[in-house]
Computed example of a mutant assay.
Amino acid sequence: MTDPGTVRPGGRTAQVRESVLRTVGDMVADRGFDALELPVVAERAGVGKTTLYRRWGSASALVSDLLVEMAASSRPRADTGSLRGDLTANAALVVDTLGDARQGRLFRAMFAAAATDPTTAESLATFYAVRVTEWAPCVDDAIMRGEAPAGTDAHEVIRAVSAPLYYRFLTTPTPPDGADADRAVAVVLAAVAAGAFTA
C-alpha cells in the first residue's frame, strides 16, 4: 500500500487532497494536533468521511501527508553565486515562515505533537531532512568556488543557520527577525572559515 502523499495524483483526487490538507493545516494551526478529528476534517473539507478514512485513516497520517506537501511546495534553494547570499536567503526563508501568523502557529503545534506522537515526530524529521538536502548544494557549490574548506559538512552548515532562529522561536514570545537571521549567517560563515564543519 502506498503511503499517503507519496504519489501526486491529478484531477478530482488532487482537489480532494488539496482541500483536506488545507483544512488540516488550518485546524492544527488554530487548535493543535489533539483537536484534529477526522469527521470534522471531512465536513470542513467538503469530502466524504469514507474517502477520508480510506485514504488517510488517522490524524497522524493526515499530518504526515501535510508535511510531505509542505516540503514539496516550500521555496527552493537559492543560487545567488555566493555562500553568504545563499545562507542569507535560507535564513530569510526560516524567518518568514516562523513569523507568518498561520505558519508559525502550525509549526508550534507540530513540535508539540511530535513530543508525544511518534508518527508526527518521524514525519517532522523527514520534512527537515528534505529541506536540508534541498539547500545543502549551496555549500557544495561554495566549496567548489573556494569559499569553504574541502570536507565541509553541507548539511550541518544548513542546520546551523536555522538552529538559533528556531531556538528564539521556541523560547521567546517573539519570532526571529532579520537581525537574528543576519547574526546567524555571520556566525556560521565564521565557523565555516575556521573549519568547524569539516570532519
Rank of each mutant, 00 (worst) to 15 (best):
M1D: 09
T2F: 13
D3K: 11
A14W: 05
V16F: 13
R17A: 14
V20G: 07
L21W: 09
V28Y: 11
D30F: 08
R31P: 03
R31K: 11
G32K: 11
A35D: 08
A45S: 14
K49Y: 12
L62V: 01
S64R: 14
S64Y: 12
D65K: 04
S74F: 15
S74V: 13
R75V: 10
R75Q: 15
A78G: 12
G81V: 00
L83D: 01
D86Y: 00
T88F: 09
A89F: 08
A92K: 09
L93R: 14
V95C: 03
D100S: 15
A101H: 15
R108I: 06
A112E: 15
D117A: 01
E122V: 09
S123D: 05
A125R: 13
F127K: 08
Y128E: 11
V130S: 14
R131P: 05
A136H: 03
C138I: 00
D140M: 05
D141I: 00
M144L: 14
P149I: 00
H155N: 13
I158C: 08
R159N: 09
P164N: 01
P164D: 02
Y166G: 07
Y166A: 08
Y167I: 11
D177P: 03
A179F: 00
R183T: 12
V188Y: 10
G195S: 06
F197I: 03
